[in-house]
């Protein structure tokens, strides 16, 4: 009624950027298909930006776009394009984007002022694929995160399922099922602010709600695995 029917808002989204040496469709097809085969389904309809920074001649953007859709990817734009490449990209219906800031994505930032050399410190690898959900997971909904952590700012309702290869953090009540370390990693944990689950499982070891009744029910709890046995501990 009085509210405007449309609204444009700026937002930031994680996008995969494809860097390549050879822009010929045949090579791209081969390389990309190989990459996608390693994680079937993971990149399905994923938005991708192609970097053309080190591109010497104008690639056939229309053909590349076609190739992407055949591979079930969505080519949304190019980055690092000069004026003539931009024009060609626009003609193919692609957006041109700023290249990502070097240092942040290309290589991890070096720690400032390294302390006196001690034992070599293993680099902390932080997966960028952690999934954060703002809101509640409702009954019947299923969330699966491959190879990373799942963070939920809300409640997981009874009859909902949250599954991750990594840890699961729930900043709300857990009333459904939570399965952490789904890939078999026994070091993963489940954290929740109010534990009333139907089932919890870490690396294939599971407990049903019957077993979980007791002191920790309804409390903020951390759940981990110790010698193949599930262990509960209060969060605070």
């Amino acid at each position: 009624m009085s509210e405007p029917s449309i609204e444009l808002k700026g937002s930031l989204f994680p996008l995969s950027v494809l860097y390549c040496q050879d822009f010929s469709v045949a090579t791209l097809r081969q390389e990309l298909a190989g990459k996608l085969a390693q994680a079937p389904g993971f990149f399905t309809q994923a938005p991708v930006v192609i970097s053309v920074e080190n591109c010497t001649q104008t690639p056939d953007f229309a053909a590349i776009k076609q190739l992407f859709s055949e591979l079930q990817l969505v080519l949304v734009g190019v980055c690092g394009a000069d004026a003539s490449l931009k024009k060609a990209a626009h003609a193919a219906g692609l957006a041109s984007l700023q290249p990502p800031k070097a240092g942040k994505t290309a290589e991890p930032a070096k720690p400032a002022a390294a302390p006196a050399p001690a034992a070599p410190v293993a680099p902390t690898v932080i997966s960028a694929d952690n999934k954060t959900i703002d809101g509640n997971i409702r009954s019947g909904q299923q969330i699966f995160v491959k190879g990373a952590d799942l963070i939920i700012r809300g409640t997981v309702g009874a009859g909902a399922e949250v599954i991750a290869d990594g840890n699961i953090h729930i900043y709300g009540a857990l009333r459904g099922k939570a399965i952490a370390g789904a890939g078999g990693d026994a070091s993963k944990k489940i954290y929740c602010y109010n534990m009333q689950p139907e089932l919890i499982s870490i690396a294939g070891n599971y407990w049903l709600s019957d077993t979980l009744q007791g002191d920790y029910w309804g409390k903020p709890v951390c759940i981990g695995l110790q010698d193949g046995q599930l262990m509960l501990a209060e969060l605070f």
Binding site: I137, R138, S139, G140, Q141, G157, A158, G159, A160
Partner: peptide, 13 residues
């Protein structure tokens, strides 16, 4: 209540 929770999931997806 559980069925409502389910329908809320539908509404948001």
């Amino acid at each position: 209540v559980r069925d409502s929770d389910r329908i809320l999931g539908m509404l948001s997806s």
